[in-house]
Design a protein around this nucleic acid. Structure first.
Lengths: 343, 343
DNA sequence: TTTAGCAGTCTCCACGGGAGAGTGCTAAAC
DNA sequence: GTTTAGCACTCTCCCGTGGAGACTGCTAAA
């Protein structure tokens, strides 16, 4: 158990280390923060904090550095979680203004806004339901025997697919086909499509096969299609000053590996979740670079309905309070937006 | 002017340096390559090559390193440009097989294939015409007062936009509207839309305003929407072992800066263009990191019709012959594909 | 329990010397 | 005239050394 004073010192050390990224000395703490004790006393307390696993010394006779456990304690009990400043809120709202003007791929924008606000890597997934449903489909003639299938799913997700037809079709014929299929199948999920055994023409069957394939692959593939922004922010941090680490992180965050390193999908809970360094449950499979990183995740949307996730990835030495409140605020803004635009 | 032997030595030095990334010694060349002269002679020739600006010494008494001029001479006169090996061609064709199965966003795929083939960064832009034309438009009801506008342009480019309507519309009404507009405006360019002064209802006007805006912004914005792949390849090269360079390159290639650093659009010419290091005309505005990079660019598609660009970016020390033939081959494959699928 | 003081330890940096790599030059050989 | 062997010279790289500086841990006094 930590005494009041030890907790305060831990807080000061973390605050200082987050700022400067170099080990924190007892004397420095004594001078800069109102501990009300000499450096020798602080030294004793720090030794105690180290014994309990909250701090660490890179080498004998250097200052202290917070451990994962230290950060965790800070986040769970020390940190006073404040609402995002009104200024910051305005900045975010302002940047989202473009959405009002019809920008449809707003998850990308959200990732960029988040990355800029927290100066780290941001991930935002598209909103999705358990099983996506057809909102609308359209066929556009490209060539004698080929057509473009445009599929609008719930949450305005757009998918395109090229079809090779078995007979020549005019645009009018294709439109008519699309209309028939819309009448029949609007609102269906992939499972419902498979279950239904409709009487339809061969061409229509060809279209619906493609539709089912697309929708099934979306339902199966999870959050792999997260937008990523702000790589530069995190690569310029001192912990990645050596290029070996940079490559590790880059691999970690490369499109194909994200879902393996960061368990976005397992975080259905309402609030903001913080994963600190080696606590990451995905670590065994993940890259070693993950050990030096923390992740702040939240979901947006409503759990029953469509929902997605947003996350911030950065070094364990991150400004947790600010990051958490930003993520929370952005999640609420995005939930609003989702409700407003898609009901 | 270079003698026969000097040219051969230059070729050997470049070949060696491309392979090993460390200064090349005269003795080493003599042992490994069939120069037919002693190291002392080679040394004399190298001194001459240095005097003429083809080679450089990092410091007195170290081996030689090719200069930009050396690379340029190599690319322009020394290099025997071979066709891509049949194996490599097959690999590329095989990877493109997915396109046959309907994958519509194949420029992304092309970038990935190219990046992997040349072990560097690859950029591929979407194909585009001078002025894009409407192929098809569709309205999908989202909410009482909001609808999604889905716009299919030539080359199957898909754009979406959210509309706020001034009256409640059912999906049937929206479909009818879309049909009317398709009848009237299919094949129109933005300029033609503006010029035409049709008699249409307020709701339709609202739609067409959005269409015009989207199309104009596409016509104005150039190749900014290039797909980028293979960052890791180039960041793991020894020239970027120190993280300062990494950041420079990252900034260079970040979405917003690409068009400034690499003049893709100015390369309308049919063949493959090679920009070596400081030769880059965009250098003054571009990042300093560009000085250490070469770019191999080609266009695909037909010049009058739709066309796009593909490029490889890597350190000046790159395998030019392989890169050039790969870019050329991929450009031809993509041109074929474009012709085949969209006529 | 706190604190002043001090010895001890570890990093960091600058300096220096030796090994090694590779060149330039010179003088002899072809 | 061209080529080559030989050698001195230069520069990097690595390693060990040693002093300055930063902090700590410990001890003994307040």
């Amino acid at each position: 158990m930590l005494t009041e004073r030890q907790a305060r010192i831990l807080e000061f050390v973390i605050s200082e280390y987050v700022e400067n990224a170099s080990p924190v000395a007892s004397q420095y703490i004594g001078e800069k923060y109102p501990v009300g004790a000499s450096s020798a006393t602080i030294r004793n307390e720090m030794a105690e904090l180290e014994e309990q696993g909250y701090l660490n010394q890179p080498h004998t006779s250097s200052g202290r550095v917070p451990t994962d456990r230290g950060y965790r304690f800070f986040v769970e009990t020390l940190m006073h979680e404040e609402d995002l400043s009104w200024d910051a809120q305005q900045t975010i709202r302002h940047q989202f203004h473009q959405v009002e003007h019809g920008q449809a791929d707003w998850t990308q924008l959200a990732a960029a806004v988040l990355a800029q606000a927290v100066h780290n890597v941001a991930l935002v997934t598209e909103p999705r339901t358990d099983a996506c449903r057809i909102k609308h489909l359209q066929l556009v003639s490209l060539h004698d025997y080929s057509a473009l299938l445009v599929l609008v799913l719930d949450e305005s997700r757009l998918k395109q697919h090229m079809l090779t037809l078995d007979e020549i079709c005019t645009q009018d014929q294709l439109s008519a086909t699309a209309n028939r299929l819309n009448q029949q199948f609007a609102g269906f999920s992939a499972a419902q499509l498979v279950a239904s055994d409709p009487q339809i023409a061969p061409t229509e069957l060809l279209v619906m096969d493609a539709v089912i394939e697309i929708m099934s692959s979306i339902d199966a593939g999870s959050f792999d299609d997260a937008h990523l922004e702000g790589l530069r922010n995190v690569l310029s941090q001192p912990e990645f000053s050596d290029s070996e680490h940079v490559l590790g992180l880059l691999e970690l965050l490369s499109e194909s590996n994200i879902s393996r390193s960061i368990p976005l999908r397992s975080l259905a809970g309402g609030g903001v979740t913080v994963i600190i360094g080696a606590d990451n449950p995905a670590l065994p499979q993940a890259n070693e670079a993950m050990r030096a990183c923390s992740v702040v995740v939240a979901s947006y949307g409503s759990t029953g309905d469509a929902s997605g996730a947003l996350a911030v990835v950065g070094p364990t030495r991150m400004h947790y309070s600010h990051t958490i409140s930003t993520v929370r605020y952005l999640a609420s803004v995005m939930s609003e937006l989702l409700a407003e635009h898609y009901e």
